[in-house]
Every structure is written in structure tokens, then in C-alpha cells.
Design a protein around this nucleic acid. Structure first.
Length: 939
RNA sequence: GCGGGGGUUGCCGAGCCAGGUCAAAGGCGGUGGACUCAAGAUCCACUCCCGUAGGGGUUCGCCGGUUCGAAUCCGGCCCCCCGCACCA
């Protein structure tokens, strides 16, 4: 069977007949969204899982009778697309080859590939190309998306919408200006993001805030940078690299001495900086500075480990607690030759460490650890490790001692910023930012930290806003439910977020056109755009017409239609239509995505809705699915294990992919895409299709016998369970139940009844079977739906009421009983290695049944007493003990009648005649019989 | 550190929230068989140990506890994974 052809056929028909383009109706609606994908390349199967699960839910909701809207758009704002265009423009081979690879997914002709990739020097072309291809991919996955409503985020109409959103936020007073440190390239004159930094995706660059402490020196200060300002109480000397260049820098009205590199950086971190003169580090060595706390005079000593390109290039020494400092001192003391170069003597470096932190297990921490580890000298590579150990120990269990003034007795992990703030308040410290590692841009330019003086923020801290956010979350359904608590935590943790950048694609910041609205901030409430985008398009409405008043009316119902029409030049009835469309579809009933969006996109999604929309339009549910990995490994370009979504249809089959996504793991756990498991799933899938195929022309049963009723009972019970499972997002369990478990039932049925009757009875339940499976495997279900004579689309059908009357407890219990008898007999045959000629079955004597019935609800401690009331005999006790041990569940079955009736079938399966309750009992087995567990003798 | 998740029989992974029917689903791998000239594919059986009568024994990271009874509940310990923002 050509599954690919079937899939393509129905996808084409669905598109042609526009069946997924819902309109406003007098019918309950369901508006589901999945975040639009970012268009910096083509999507792979890992992305596919989330969209697929979204589509499965959308289709299930249609089955339940909802008018479902499932729209999609494309995200192109931000720096990545721009960075790619720049890289291609600059002839970056790595990027060009990567994009050629992407394009080859869709194009066969190598000349065409070249042509397309060279067009990517224009970022617009990248966005347009991949948006178009991704739409094609999604259609090819069978997604039931309304494509009339698509847009991309660099379009003028979208810009207008984002502008409106920011105006609303501005009116609430949460758009603010302030200073902010960022990574930056001096040579490019631009901020740089993860995508601009060499290996930025693998090895992240973060911004570290150093405390710059001022040590009085001549006409100004030597400014030493530290990440542990609390250690200032134990300072004994400064370290300068004698071979590095240090500069005298005018910082407002102060003079700072810092390394040449640091001076350069400082220009980008503070205003009003001028470098006056530069001299070699060795010129400082041997001189003295005053430390800021007590004003002690401490010497400046040489240390080659000091990196002038890290922070200020000046380091203060705390030999009691810093292994580097301790070791450097030890080294100096041993090296008089070296000291002489700076006019120093051994005496000058006989420095006693000052211990300021008490910590269990250490006397003098830095010395102890160096000795313990056998550190050889200041260039020993294990010094880093030693530093980490000390830092960790001190941080978690260290306490500042009496040398630390008002901070004495406080644990290190509790003072964190206090010492820093204290020093700052005294004017003895400042802040110096540095990158967490040495980094360069993709063009090889140095990355530093710059401080933007006028960064725009969204301020999430106002309490009214957080309260609304919490309220929104409270009223929302989360699946898995644990994420609800996590989301409350995230809302509490939100502070200020920069919302604009100096470069990238996107919407210009309304109050300062040099800034572009940052790409997570511009995609928070855009689901509202889906409700009207197709009308804007249809009417050819221009971006300029989408004024603030327009959105105010359509989304918030403010002012009068006539006014808005006059103001915008859009016809009144069109505006009303949009208002109607919005009020019908909104709120967003379900947003489906993956957990990485939790602390960013979803948090903003919630907060912005809470701020801008009235409660009735707040989103209703968030569902999340885990990631997809492949053969146990993360899917990534660098691992080379990416399977493009576009290849799924030909390589595996779309229904099979969807089924795998649904069945391989629970929604919230990781799906592992394994070829061997896919192969086995394919076998089962083909088995399923064969069952369907064999029943297409079969005559449905008119009358049902016992076995038929059993299978129907199983079917409707599973159907009933599966609807509940589906509805509570346990899609995996629903599908296993409805597909695999029911197929096992069918196999079992066939074993007793034969293949011909199986073909017929399947025909009886085929409609409902196809319907319940259709959300997951829509193409094959659509195919058979038509093959068995329907001329509607199964994709638009509703699931009928469950036929409860077919669910039959009694028959299922009888079947279970027969199964257990048969499997007991088979077990004996196997264990005893017997070739059976005759099988004797002895059911339990009636008194056993009477007792069992009498004690079925009695507590274990009372059973024997209770049983003895009925039948006073030693054998009663034995029987009850046995019964309890076997853990048999009581059901009322006429064993004799049932066995008699099904005798022939059991004999067929076991291949030997069966004799029920014969007097012939040579091994005296009859007495072992229990109710629902007859005794057996085989010969 | 803060927050979240997890350690199950050769492997992957259910089950544990609502303790018994759990030697513990399913798949993969392995073994044997059917089919075939043969291979592959497919199908069937077995796959913790012992057992010629449906049975018994030892298991679910480690150590304790609760309980008639624990993979499942409680306490402690060891180990592993993920996120911590201005980045889409």
C-alpha cells in the first residue's frame, strides 16, 4: 500500500476544500495555538513533535464537536536572521554551507541552491523562503491549520500591532528607561548576542559583575576587581602584572589606575572617561597603597598570573583564603633574584596572611589546601580547582570572624552583596563588568561588556501586575499540572526585562526609532492577530490604517465604530466583522508548546494578557510536551543527527510519525526517535491497516453471540476510557488502549471464532474505531472512512455517544474465567511435559462458593470466624487460607454451565478432550478446586 | 546555590499520585521453532533462578521505618539529568 500517496491525496483534498478554515458560528469554539516557529532555517522532527501534538489535540476537539481554530504564523524578528544574512554577505563558508544544506532539502538543482542561498544576503529573503517551505512542510504533516490567517512578524501590519501593544504597556507605566550591561563589540560598534559570538551557542558568555575596590595611591586609586568583596578585610597586598601596561584614567573627578585593556572597556561602561597616560606595571611594584577599610599601608607586589585583560587588571591579595595569592607569596619568598629586579628583599614579602573566615576543617584555608594538594607553584594548573574547593566550602559553611567589623558572625552565603553595598555607599567601591570568558565575535572581534545608558525595559515588578498574573494562572489549566506552581514561581521571579535592542529585524520602538523591539517582547499576545489577520488581508487594509484606535476598538471594544471608521478609512462593517471574529475566538483556549518556553515566552504571554486584556479574554490552558531525542542523543546540527520535517513523509510516513509521537512516550516525557522501534511500530501499523482492509467488503453482523458480545464490550469499554484519556491529555494511554490493546482483543477473538467472523464484526465497529484514531493517524482513517462508503470528511466528523449498552461486565468476567482455566491447563502441560490425551476439570463444591460469597467483603482478620459460622469443619479453614493466598476476586459465574457451553472451543485450543466434573479422579485433585479456579487433572 | 525531574529485571522504558491481583506492560536485543532451496521479511514460543502439575525462591539506587502486606507511603544517604533570563 502506498501510504505516501494516500497521505498526499487527502492533504490535497483538505486544502482544496478548505476544510480547516472555520468561521464564526453559533457553536462552541476551541482556539488552540502553538508558538510560531523561528524562521532561521528549516524545521526538524524534534520541532515536529510539538506541532504534531498540537494538531492531534485540535483534531480531537473537532471530534468532540467544537468549532476549532488552529492557526499558524512565522517568527522572523530578532538578530539571528540578520546575523545569517550578514555572515552570508561576508562570505562565511560555514554559514553558507549550512544554508545550502537547508535549501537542498527542498531543491534538487544545485544551481538553484546557489541562487537561493546567495539571495539570503537579504534577511527578508531568508524569512520568506523558510516561511513558505515550512508551510509546505506543515501541510505535508497533515496539520489542520487555517492558513488564511498566517503572517510573519516583520510585516508592517504586525509592526502596527506590536506598536499598539507597547502603547498599552506604556500607558500602564511599565515601559521604563535605565542602565544595562550587555555584551558588545567595539570594532563592530554593536551589541552582540549569542548568535554573533564564536561558539556562543555551545559555550555561553554571561556578564559578571565585579566589585571594583579603590586603594588610595598617590593622586588617586589603584582599583582592584573582585568577585568576593567580603574578603577585603583580609587584604595584605596588591598584585600587578609587571609586564602589563597600566593607565591613569580620569573617571569623573577621580583618578583610577587600571590596566590599559580595562581602561578601554571602562569607556564603554561609564560616561566621562579619559585616559591620561600609560606606564609599565613594574613601575608600581614596591610602592604602597592604603586599603579602604582601616587605611593600612600594603605593598604592591609583582604577579605574572594577573591577566590585564580580565576586569581591571589589578588584584588584591588575600593569602589566607585565596590559593593563588598564598602560592604567589610563597613563590616570591623563594625567589630573591626576581625580587631584586624590583628592588625588593625577602623581608618585604614576609607577609602574614590575615584570616577573616572561620571554617570547620581548616586552620588557614588557602595554605591548607595548597599543602594538601601538593601545589607546586603559582603556575600549577590545579590552583583553579583548589580555589573552587575553598570557595565552595567557605561559601556554604564559612563565617566571617571578628576582623570583619559589623559583618562578624555572618555566614558568607548570607552577606553576598552587603559588603559590596557598604563599600559602595562609602564611595570606596564601584562596579566593573566583565565577560565570563574570553570571547570573540564570528568575525574575530573582541567581545567586551558595555553599559547601555538608555536601555528600555519592561518592568514586571509592580504588584498590581504580579497579582493579575497570579490570578490568571490560578484560573488556568496546566498539563502537566506541576507547571502551574512553577509558573507562579516564575511570575514572582520576573523583574525588569530589556525589551529593545539596537539591531535586528522587528518593530521600531515607538518612542525612540533607533531601537528595535526585542523579539520575545513582540510575541506575547499575537494570538489576537490570528482572529483578524485574514480579514485585513482580504480587505487589502494598509498598515497605516491600523491605528491605535482601531486595535482599541477591535480588541478592547473602546469608543465607537463610526469614529474608528472615519479615522482609519476602514469600512464600518469590516471593523465590526473583526470585532465579532475576535470576540468569538478569544480567549486562546489552549496554548501548546515545550517547557523551554516556560520562563520566557509563556511568562510574558501570561503577563501581557493580564495587563492588556479583560479577564474574559485571558488564556485558559497551557499544555507542554517533552523534547524529542534521537537514538538517545540530543538532536542538533552539530551532532549531525537532524532529520528534516520535510523528509518524514518519504522516509517514514506521516501517520507513522504522528503515531510514534503519540505513543512512544507520555506527553510530558522525552520521546526517543529510534529506528528499531519505528520499524516495530510500522509492523503493527501495517497489521492494523490489514485488519481494516479485510473488513472493507465484509457484511456486518446482524446478530451477536457470546463471543461477539465480548468483543463489542471490550471495544466500547476501551472507547469510553479512551475519550476520557484523550480529554485529559493522556494521549499515549488512549492510543495504546484503542489501538494495541484492542488489536490484541481482536486477535483473541479470532482465536476462538475464526477469521471470517472477525472480518465481519470489525465492520460493525469500524466507523467508531476510525473516528477515535483519526486525530493521530488522520490520513489512513480518512482513506478507510471513504472506502467504507462515507462521503464526508472524517476530519470534520463528531464522535457519537458511547454505546453503553454494549459494555457487559458479566461476559467479560466469564471470558477472564475461561482464559485463566485455559492458561492453567497450558501451564501444567508445559511444566509437566505431558502430551495431553484427556483433560479433567473439577469445579469447586457448592459449599465453597457459598463461603466465598459470604466472606467476600469481610475483613481479612474476620474471615475464618465468619466462614466457620457457615460450615464448621477443619477443611473450611484450609479452604479459606488457600482462597486468601490465591487472591481470587469474587464474581458470580456459573462455572459448570460456562465450561459445558464452551467445551468444544476449549478443546480446539488445547487439542484434547475435556471431561468436566467426572467421578474419575485418580490423583484426588478435586479437593483442591476453588471457586473460579477449578482443579485440573491431565493424562 | 535556587527550582524541577529521575535512578525498575541485558538495553530503552511503563508502573509508582489512589500500597496487595507485580517477577513487574510494551518495545529492542537474545534463544528456539514455523515458513523458505537459502537468506531476509513475517509469524509463534521462551527470555531473573529452581521445578515432570497450575508451585517455590530472590529482585525494582542504598539504609532504616510504617503496614498483615511496599517498586509503590515516610525518614536519611548516594548518584544522575535539566533550567536559572534579556537569547530565540
Amino acid at each position: 500500500m502506498d501510504f505516501a500517496a494516500i497521505e498526499r491525496k487527502w492533504q490535497r483534498k483538505w486544502q482544496e476544500d478548505r476544510i480547516f478554515e472555520p468561521r464564526v458560528e453559533n457553536k462552541k469554539k476551541f482556539f488552540i495555538t502553538v508558538p510560531y516557529p523561528y524562521m532561521s532555517g528549516s524545521l526538524h522532527i524534534g520541532h515536529g513533535r510539538t506541532f504534531t501534538m498540537g494538531d492531534i489535540i485540535a483534531r480531537f476537539k473537532r471530534l468532540q464537536g467544537y468549532n476549532v481554530l488552529f492557526p499558524m504564523a512565522f517568527h522572523v524578528t530578532g538578530t539571528p536572521v540578520l546575523a545569517i544574512a550578514d555572515a552570508i554577505k561576508a562570505g562565511d563558508e560555514k554559514v553558507i554551507n549550512l544554508y545550502k544544506e537547508y535549501v537542498r532539502i527542498y531543491e534538487d538543482d544545485e544551481n538553484r541552491v546557489e541562487e537561493i542561498v546567495s539571495s539570503f544576503v537579504e534577511p527578508e529573503n531568508i524569512a520568506r523562503y523558510f516561511a513558505q517551505k515550512t508551510q509546505q512542510d506543515f501541510i505535508g504533516m497533515g496539520y489542520s491549520i487555517d492558513w488564511r490567517r498566517k503572517f510573519h512578524t516583520a510585516e508592517p501590519i504586525y509592526n502596527k500591532f506590536v506598536e499598539w501593544q507597547f502603547k498599552k504597556l506604556y500607558d500602564k507605566g511599565v515601559i521604563k528607561k535605565g542602565k544595562y550591561p550587555i555584551t558588545y563589540s567595539i570594532e563592530d560598534g554593536n551589541p552582540v548576542g549569542e548568535d554573533d559570538i564564536e561558539d556562543g551557542d555551545i559555550n555561553k558568555v554571561s556578564i559578571m559583575e565585579f566589585t571594583a575596590i579603590k586603594f588610595q595611591f598617590e593622586d588617586g586609586y589603584l582599583v582592584a576587581a573582585t568577585l568576593r568583596p567580603e574578603t577585603i578585610f583580609g587584604v595584605t597586598n596588591l598584585w600587578l602584572n609587571p609586564n602589563a601596561t597600566y593607565c591613569k584614567v580620569k573617571v569623573r573627578d577621580e583618578i583610577w589606575y587600571i590596566s590599559k585593556e580595562a581602561a578601554e572597556k571602562l569607556k564603554y561602561q561609564k560616561e566621562d572617561i579619559s585616559v591620561e597616560e600609560c606606564i609599565l606595571g613594574e613601575r608600581f611594584i614596591g610602592k604602597y597603597v592604603k586599603e579602604p577599610v582601616e587605611g593600612r599601608e600594603i605593598p604592591i607586589l609583582p604577579a605574572e598570573f594577573v591577566d590585564p585583560d580580565n576586569a581591571t587588571g589589578v588584584v588584591y591579595s588575600v593569602p589566607a583564603h585565596a590559593p593563588y595569592d598564598y602560592q604567589a607569596l610563597v613563590d616570591l619568598q623563594k625567589n630573591e633574584e626576581y625580587l631584586k629586579r624590583f628592588g625588593l628583599s625577602k623581608n618585604d614579602v614576609e607577609i602574614e596572611p590575615i584570616k577573616i573566615i572561620d571554617i570547620k576543617g581548616y586552620d588557614m584555608p588557602a595554605r591548607d589546601i595548597c599543602e594538601k594538594m601538593g601545589i607546586k607553584g603559582q603556575n600549577d594548573s590545579r590552583l583553579e580547582e583548589a580555589t573552587q574547593i575553598i570557595y565552595k566550602d567557605e561559601f556554604y559553611s564559612g563565617i566571617l570572624n571578628e576582623r570583619c567589623k559589623q559583618f562578624a558572625g555572618i555566614k558568607i552565603n548570607e552577606i553576598k552583596d552587603e559588603v559590596k553595598n557598604w563599600l559602595k555607599s562609602l564611595g570606596k567601591a564601584d562596579v566593573f563588568y566583565e565577560t565570563s570568558r574570553k570571547a570573540v565575535t564570528r568575525n574575530g572581534h573582541k567581545v567586551i561588556v558595555a553599559v547601555l545608558q538608555e536601555q528600555w525595559f519592561i518592568d514586571y515588578t509592580p504588584s498590581w501586575w504580579k497579582e493579575l498574573g497570579h490570578k490568571l494562572v490560578d484560573n488556568m489549566v496546566f498539563y502537566p499540572s506541576k507547571y502551574k506552581g512553577i509558573m507562579h514561581g516564575i511570575i514572582d521571579w520576573l523583574e525588569k526585562r530589556p525589551c529593545a535592542r539596537k539591531r535586528g529585524l522587528g518593530t521600531r520602538f515607538p518612542w525612540n526609532k533607533e531601537w528595535i523591539i526585542e523579539s520575545l517582547s513582540d510575541s506575547t499576545i499575537y494570538m489576537a492577530m490570528y482572529t483578524i489577520a485574514h480579514i485585513i488581508r482580504r480587505e487589502g487594509i494598509k498598515a497605516e490604517q491600523l491605528k491605535e484606535e482601531f486595535f482599541d476598538y477591535v480588541f478592547l471594544g473602546k469608543s465607537e465604530v463610526s469614529e474608528v471608521a472615519k479615522l482609519t478609512g476602514i469600512k464600518e462593517d469590516v471593523i465590526e466583522e473583526m470585532r465579532t471574529e475576535f470576540s468569538y475566538w478569544y480567549p486562546n483556549d489552549e496554548r501548546h508548546t515545550a517547557p523551554p518556553h516556560l520562563s520566557n515566552h509563556l511568562a510574558f504571554f501570561i503577563m501581557h494578557h493580564a495587563a492588556i486584556f479583560p479577564e474574559e479574554y485571558w488564556p485558559r490552558a497551557i499544555t507542554l510536551n517533552g523534547l524529542m531525542i534521537r537514538e538517545g542523543a540530543k538532536i542538533s546540527k552539530s551532532k549531525g543527527n537532524v532529520i528534516p520535517l520535510a523528509h518524514v513523509a518519504d522516509k517514514y510516513g506521516v501517520d507513522l510519525f504522528r503515531l510514534y509521537c503519540a505513543v512512544n512516550a507520555d506527553l510530558d516525557s522525552v520521546v526517543d526517535w529510534r529506528e528499531s522501534e519505528i520499524a516495530s511500530l510500522r509492523r503493527r501499523f501495517v497489521q492494523f491497516v490489514n485488519i481494516l482492509e479485510e473488513s472493507v467488503d465484509a457484511e456486518p453482523l446482524k446478530e451477536y453471540d457470546w463471543y461477539d458480545k465480548w468483543l463489542l464490550s471490550k471495544f466500547y469499554r476501551r472507547l469510553k476510557e479512551s475519550v476520557v484519556l484523550f480529554d485529559t491529555f493522556r494521549i499515549r494511554d488512549a492510543m495504546i488502549n484503542m489501538l494495541f490493546h484492542f488489536m490484541n482483543d481482536v486477535k483473541e477473538y479470532e482465536k476462538f471464532v475464526g477469521v471470517e467472523r472477525r472480518k465481519r464484526i470489525i465492520r460493525n465497529v469500524m466507523d467508531e474505531w476510525l473516528l477515535i484514531l483519526s486525530p493521530v493517524i488522520p490520513h489512513i482513517c480518512e482513506e478507510y472512512w471513504h472506502k467504507i462508503g462515507h462521503n464526508t470528511y472524517i476530519s470534520l466528523e463528531n464522535l457519537p455517544e458511547i454505546k453503553e449498552e454494549y459494555i457487559n461486565e458479566e461476559i467479560e468476567a466469564e471470558k477472564d474465567y475461561l482464559d485463566s482455566v485455559i492458561s492453567d491447563i497450558e501451564e501444567i502441560i508445559k511444566i509437566a511435559k505431558i502430551q495431553p490425551h484427556k483433560i479433567y476439570i473439577y469445579t469447586a463444591e457448592p459449599w465453597k462458593g457459598d463461603i466465598f460469597r459470604a466472606i467476600k467483603d469481610v475483613s481479612p482478620k474476620e474471615v475464618i470466624k465468619e466462614a466457620m459460622k457457615i460450615r464448621k469443619d477443619k477443611s473450611t479453614v484450609d479452604f479459606v487460607k488457600k482462597l486468601l493466598k490465591e487472591k481470587i476476586k469474587f464474581v458470580e459465574i456459573d462455572e459448570n454451565a460456562l465450561l459445558e457451553r464452551e467445551k468444544q472451543k476449549i478443546e480446539n485450543i488445547l487439542g484434547a478432550p475435556i471431561i468436566i466434573n467426572s467421578d474419575y479422579d485418580p490423583k484426588n485433585k478435586r479437593k483442591f478446586a476453588l471457586p473460579l479456579k477449578p482443579a485440573i487433572y491431565i493424562e
